[in-house]
Every structure is written in C-alpha cells, then in structure tokens.
Computed example of a mutant assay.
Amino acid sequence: MRVRGYAPATPCWAEYAAADPAAAADFYAGLFGWAPGEVFTLDGRAVAGVVPGAPGRPGCWLGYLSAPSADDAVAAVVDAGGAVLAPPHDRGGRGRAALVADAEGAVFGIWQRGAFGGAEAANEPATMCWTEVVTWREDTAAAFYGKAFGWSERKSEIAEGVDHIEWCKDSRVVGGMSVMDERYPAGTPAHWRITFEVADCAAAIARCVELGGSVLAGPLDLPVGHYALLADPQGGSFGVIALSEAILETRL
C-alpha cells in the first residue's frame, strides 16, 4: 500500500548505517527484493535508506520519527532528558533531520518532511511494519517518551507469559517497547529495533543465512505471526515477521 504521509510523533523512515554501503545494498536487495541505491525502492516506492557508517563499526538500523518541526522535537528530547547527537540540519529539499538519543542512550532520528515524507510503502511484505525501543528500564523509557512525544504505554501479553508493551499516541498504536532481562548479554545498550514484514518467515531466515547473515533468535510462533531476529553480514540486527492470517484479515 502506498503511504502519503505520517502523523507527528510516528515512525516514518529507517536508514541503515553501513561501513560498506555497497555490500549492505547487495544483501538487502537479495533478501527483500529491493532495488538498491541511496534509497532502497520496492516497485518504485521508497522503503528504506542506506548511509555510510563509521569504518570498523557494526552496521545498524536507525529509525526516524516524524515531526512538524525538527528543531522543536529536538528541544523536547533534551527537555525530557535525552541528548543531541547531530543537530537539526537540512537534507536538500527532501527534509530536515536530526539524530538524538533517549534518556537511556537509545539512538533514533527526527524527520521533518520537505519533498519527502518517509517510507512510501507499508502493510505488505518487504516493508517496515514495526519499530520498538529495547531498554533495560521501562520506567525511564516511559517517562522520556511520554514527555518528549506524548506517548503512553498499553500493556498486554503477546503470548502466555510474554509481555507486550505498545506505545500509543492519541489512541493510535505507534510502536512498542521491549524490556531486556537476563537473556540479553550484560552491557547491551538500549536501542531501537526495526522489523520488516515478510511473506514467509522460514524462507526469509534461509535466504538471510544464504546471503551471509545469521539468526539471533527464533523463529518464534506468536499469535501475531512467525517472527525471527536476524543479523546481516555487517552485524546490523533487524526483525522479520510473517503476519498471521487473523492480522492480515484486518486489512481487508
């Protein structure tokens, strides 16, 4: 489905920072069928970007939140206890961006649209379908995102004994939060995780491994679908999910 725009304080875009952008482009083109370039496209629609990362550092996915004013959003981040890593700057006529971190150090971007509003495709395979902050301290994250963006928590169980926390903005679900525990290595930094929809989770896992990637967790059979956490050859982690029939039917 083609997306025309995004409400404020909503995940709208994802970029992959890679020490070797060309190799990253080959991997994700091979995995998702994206046309490679500075902006990955699917059937002519922008779905994600790739930018040069620091030499010698693992690749990473960076999610962006939409904002009517990048400068105002950055001020709100600082007021809520976050930090500015790259101040608001123009990206030609495409928009205005900033790079920030929340109160626990999870890095994300701010995007103020110009000619470009964000990902142009959603609700189909090979597109970003979910973003979540992964943190050690739920209370700190809730206080930060509540103050900076007006988000509130909604708690449930995604499966028996498996907590699920959604972020809501004006009654709309905009993302999620996953709280780290002993299953994560000590010292794992707080971070944002990007998940992409796929038609077949097992096939996506096999293709990832074939292209030189690895499986970090899963596959997991959840009520919402079959999920796995993967890593590309440069160390960037991301999720894939084949949504359940019940979820897909809600789109009809």
Rank of each mutant, 00 (worst) to 15 (best):
V215P: 02
A73G: 05
D221E: 15
G225S: 10
D221P: 01
A106M: 07
A97Y: 01
S178K: 06
L230V: 07
A242N: 11
E104I: 02
D139I: 07
A148V: 00
W111H: 09
V107G: 09
A121D: 06
A24C: 05
A204I: 06
D43Q: 14
G150F: 09
E249M: 05
A103I: 11
D90K: 10
E249F: 02
E120Q: 15
V224I: 15
A23E: 12
V3C: 04
P87H: 06
Y6D: 05
D170R: 12
C201Q: 07
P88I: 13
E245V: 09
G81D: 04
E160C: 04
A7T: 06
V74R: 07
E104A: 14
E160H: 12
L216Q: 14
W61S: 00
P11S: 05
C12W: 08
A126L: 08
V215R: 03
E38W: 00
W13R: 09
V162G: 02
A101I: 05
D72K: 10
G187R: 03
L85S: 05
G150V: 09
P52A: 10
A17L: 15
E160Y: 02
S214W: 00
I110K: 09
A231F: 05
A70T: 13
F32A: 11
Y145Q: 05
V198M: 03
P55G: 11
V77N: 02
R113P: 05
D79Y: 01
V100S: 04
S178P: 00
E153W: 00
Y184M: 10
N123G: 00
S66W: 08
V100Q: 02
R137H: 14
L62W: 04
D43R: 14
M128F: 10
T250I: 00
